[in-house]
C-alpha cells in the first residue's frame, strides 16, 4: 500500500497536499483499493464554501457510493476536470492525476491537525483488523 510521506491524511481516507494556502485533496490508495473499480466521480463546483467534514463529492464503484469529505474549512477553488471522463484515474493514480479538489484554507495552518503518513499507516493497520 502506497502512503507518501509528504501528504496529510484523514480518518475518512482522504489525502491533502499543502500548496501555499491551498490544500489539494484526493482519496488514498487504500480507499481506492477498498472501493474497487471507480466508475464515476461527482464533485461540488468551484466556489463552494466547505467546512471540515462536509462532503465535497462522491466516488462511485459499481456496488457502492462513497462520500469524499473536506479535510479542512475553506473554499473549493479548483475541481479536477479529468475525472469526469476518466474515473479510472482514481484507481490508477490516486495521489497524482486523480486529485479531486483544491481547497483554499480559511486557516492556512489547519492541515497540521491532520494525520501524517506514519499516523495514517497505523490507523489503516488498525482498521484492517
Amino acid at each position: 500500500m502506497n502512503i507518501p510521506d509528504d501528504l496529510y491524511y484523514t480518518e475518512n481516507h482522504e489525502w491533502g497536499k499543502v500548496e501555499d494556502g491551498d490544500l489539494r485533496v484526493g482519496i488514498t490508495d487504500y480507499a481506492q483499493e477498498e472501493l474497487g473499480d471507480i466508475v464515476f466521480v461527482d464533485l461540488l463546483p468551484e466556489g463552494t464554501a466547505v467546512s471540515r467534514g462536509d462532503s465535497v463529492g462522491t466516488v462511485e464503484s459499481v456496488k457502492a457510493v462513497s462520500e469524499v469529505y473536506a479535510p479542512v474549512d475553506g473554499e473549493i477553488t479548483e475541481v479536477n476536470p479529468a475525472l469526469e471522463d476518466a474515473p479510472e484515474l482514481v484507481n490508477q493514480d490516486p495521489y497524482g492525476k486523480a486529485w479531486m479538489v483544491v481547497i483554499r484554507m480559511t486557516d492556512p495552518s489547519a492541515a497540521r491537525s491532520l494525520m501524517d503518513s506514519r499516523a495514517y499507516e497505523e490507523y489503516v493497520k488498525a482498521e484492517a483488523k
Binding site: 462511485e60 459499481v62 456496488k63 457502492a64 457510493v65
Partner: peptide, 12 residues
Amino acid sequence: LSTREQHIRREK
C-alpha cells in the same frame, strides 16, 4: 447505474 437505486444509496 445501480448506485442511484435504493439497495445501494438507501435513503438518498
